[in-house]
Amino acid sequence: MSIKVKNVNYTYSEGTAYEIHALKDVNLEILDGQFVGLIGHTGSGKSTLIQHLNGLIRATEGKIYFNGRDIYGEKYPLKELRSKVGLVFQYPEYQLFETDVLKDVCFGPKNLGYSQEEAEKKAKEALRMVGMGEEYDQSSPFELSGGQKRRVAIAGVLAMEPEVLILDEPTAGLDPRGRDEILDQISYLKRERGITVILVSHSMEDVARYVDRLIVMNQGQVRFDGTPREVFRHYQELREIGLDAPQVTYLMKSLKEKGAHVDVDATTVEEAADAIAAWLKERE
């Protein structure tokens, strides 16, 4: 059970003045149950890549396999793929359209052919999963706060019971409180449901705490792929492509340069504090 991306290339508006080679020979395998952070700045190809994974964009060249099956194969049920690989777009609150929250979340399951009753059951379950209580079921989605709207939108995809959940910049435009709440909720969801989660972001600092694998994209190519610690070791190259490792990575590095005997692999504030405390207590 996995998503396998093989030699995928994608070119926008081929043959016009605006031609862009958005993906260049991308190879990836995302295993079941992984929590992946996909990092890159605007134009790095990350958004294009995830739209390939559920078949919204068709690769110009290359193959994609979902659970071993070629999704470009004849008679491959693309609609089913879209429910299995749930994709939540950036600013998802702009897609809400129904008169109440519950109806909006029902939209997905009903499209999959579930009866009203089943759809509502799934919708309710999904809403509780994202932390939206029953009291909001009948409210208009337009009267909710920014963070709440975003939860409802995520529930809208979750209600289709996907095996893989992809979130494109789920924290864009949210304030720090909203950002932390959404990320905590996603991480809770990941634990509860055990589904595969791909978190797309341009902020290393935000996702490093949550994910167990980081994929860094630059100019349509995969630059780094590994655990956060492994990836952050390349802090210099990361800075060159306009992405920063967490601030503490640079802190530990400066300390080391000053001759301090510290573990430079710390990626979170707690780890850094531990490492520095250990160094300070050390007897020469």
């Binding site: 720090p176 409180r177 932390d180 600092e205 967490p246 601030q247 503490v248 802190l251 504030v269 707690e270 850094a272 504090a273 520095i276 405390a277 300070l280």
Partner: peptide, 20 residues
């Protein structure tokens, strides 16, 4: 207030709490 604080400040804060 659940506002962000620079990581350097946070590390210093953690170390202060540990008595440094």
């Amino acid at each position: 207030l659940r506002l962000d604080v620079p990581q350097a400040t946070l590390v210093a804060y953690e170390l202060q709490k540990r008595g440094f």
